[in-house]
Each structure stands twice: as C-alpha cells, then as structure tokens.
C-alpha cells in the first residue's frame, strides 16, 4: 500500500488515531454483520426461548418460497427501470446543458437540488400527486380515460415508486454526466464538425463512447441506489403493497424481520443482500483500477 517517503516513527500514536474509526466499525458494522451471518443458520422457536442450528435451511426455504422469488423479480424490474430512466433522462439534460454557454449555471442549479430531498419525502411528494381521490395526475389521466389506483393495482404502484425513485436520482447522474462531458477536449468535436459530422452524429460517435467510464460507473451506483437507498420511498408510499407488488428485497428484510419477527429468514436475506453489495463494490473498484477504454 502506498505511503510517504519519510514517515513519523511514533509507535503508539497511529493506533490511537485509528481507534475511534475502528471501534465504531467493529461495534456497529462488523459485529452486527457477523451476528446476521450466525442467525441466518439458526431458527428461533416462536417464543424466542430456544434457538437451534439448522444449517442452510433458512436459505433453502427462501429459494423455494414463491414470495421471495417474486420479490427478487420485483427488485430486478424496479432496479433496471430506475437505472435506465434516471440515466437516460440525465444524459439528455446533461447534453443539453453542455451545449449552452451563458445559461448553463441556472439550469444546473434548477436541476441538482432533488439530490438533497430525502427518499421518503420524494415518495410522499409523488404519492400525493398520484393520490387516487384528490391527486392531480389521476385527474389528468382520467381525462384520457385511464383509471389510476395504486392502492389496488400492483402495476400502478410499481410505476409510482419507479417514478419517485427516478425523479430523485436524475440530479446525481446529471452532475456526473455533465462533468464527464466537460472533460472531453473541444478539439475532438471541432475536428469532427470540420469533417462534416452533425451534432447528433458527433454525440453518438465521439461524446457518448468517450463517456463510457462515467456511464459504467453510474450504472453500478444506480443499481446500488435502486436496491438499497430506496427503502424510504417504499416505506413512505406503498409499504410493499398492494399484495407484495412493490416488496423489493431491502424492504422485505425489514418487513419479515421487524414486523414479521422471523429472525432467521430475515438474517438469511440480509446475508444475501450483503453478498450482492460486496459484488457491486468489487465490480466498482475493479473498474476504478482499470477504466473502460476505447
């Protein structure tokens, strides 16, 4: 690991400096994670009096439980939709702002603030807009003969949480796309223009390929966001309903463990989620070491 050419030679001081960070990490991160792994192999009797070691039974039960497999599928639909929509819209907006010279700052300011809105608040904002009895959007949809009710229709509920999650994430993607575009040298696009390439051709053949490191990085971050940071959006709006339609994995851990008090199953789900995060972080860091190049 990299360090300085000359270093301080104190023996105890570095441990003292690291102590607070390590203490918090061990007590609140590593210890609970180890506990989760341990209880994922155990089963508690209904009164919480005895626990017995059950090997992989919690896991095998999960993967034969249609509810859990359904939740996996829901998460996939949700994460892919949010990632695609948030990135596509952000790319369009960033490309537009990048064309401007004078007013780009104004637009940037107007577009980035949703980053600071809490997910649960974003959820409630859209919940209110789509409220079946008084909301403005169901009213507008009604004019076209479309009936909207996210309390009874699983599809409507899924669309609602996808919209809320996308709305909040656009600002983040926008900033990264814009930063990526601004780091592309002007000489490249100018040369292409002299060779007769129009704006759209220049975008798809020069700018977009050169953005591929940013695009890839954002893809990982967005999947991570959609899978783990959207808890508040789900809890603030549909609470996983109707009929499990929006019960994504991260919400199910909470639902089964805290509300359903099924500790063993919830712990097994936690462990599966941890493995997913570890895989995502690993991919992300591999990529930072060796960027996608053309």
């Amino acid at each position: 690991m990299q360090t300085k050419r000359t270093i301080f030679s104190n023996k105890g001081l570095p441990y003292l400096l690291l102590a607070p960070q390590l203490a918090i990490t061990i007590v609140f991160f590593i210890w609970p994670a180890a506990q989760a792994v341990k209880s994922s192999f155990e089963r508690e009797d209904p009164f919480g009096l005895r626990t017995s070691f059950v090997w992989f039974q919690n896991y095998t039960r999960l993967f034969t439980d249609p509810n859990y497999l359904n939740s996996f599928g829901r998460t996939l639909i949700f994460a892919v939709s949010v990632t695609f929509l948030a990135m596509a819209i952000a790319l369009l907006l960033a490309a537009a702002v990048n064309r401007l010279i004078r007013s780009s700052n104004v637009y940037t300011t107007l577009l980035v603030w949703p980053y600071a809105v809490a997910p649960v608040v974003a959820g409630i904002l859209w919940w209110f807009m789509f409220n079946p009895s008084i909301g403005i959007l169901p009213y507008a949809l009604g004019q076209f003969g479309i009936t909207w009710n996210h309390r009874t229709s699983g599809t409507d509920a899924m669309i609602l949480v996808i919209i809320a999650a996308t709305w909040k994430q656009i600002s983040y993607n926008f900033l990264f796309f814009l930063a990526g575009m601004q780091s592309i040298p002007n000489s490249l696009t100018e040369a292409a223009a002299i060779d007769g390439a129009g704006p759209f051709k220049r975008f798809w053949t020069i700018v977009f390929p050169l953005l591929s490191p940013t695009t890839f990085f954002l893809m990982i971050i967005n999947i991570n966001y959609a899978m783990f940071d959207t808890f508040g959006i789900i809890d603030g709006t549909t609470s996983g309903g109707p009929n499990q339609a929006t019960n994504i994995l991260v919400y199910k851990v909470y639902d089964d463990g805290f509300l359903g008090l099924n500790i063993g199953s919830s712990a097994a789900q936690s462990v599966i989620l941890m493995l997913i995060v570890i895989a995502l972080v690993f991919v992300q860091f591999r990529f930072i070491e060796r960027r996608v190049q053309y």
């Binding site: 960070q21 390590l22 990490t25 061990i26 007590v27 609140f28 991160f29 590593i30 210890w31 609970p32 994670a33 506990q35 989760a36 209880s39 783990f228 940071d229 808890f231 991260v250 851990v253 909470y254 463990g257 805290f258 500790i263 919830s266 712990a267 936690s270 989620l273 941890m274 995060v277 570890i278 972080v281």
Partner: peptide, 21 residues
C-alpha cells in the same frame, strides 16, 4: 476493516445493529 463499512449499508443489517444499540 474501514473499507468493509462500504459494503454494509444499514438497511441490510438492521436487526443485529438494532440489537447492539
């Protein structure tokens, strides 16, 4: 050890963390 914290968002280890606290 510090790096590991990246991999363990609160949402995925709520029950044991709650128990510790």
């Amino acid at each position: 050890i510090i790096f590991v914290t990246l991999m363990l968002p609160v949402e995925v280890r709520i029950i044991p963390t709650f128990a510790v606290v």
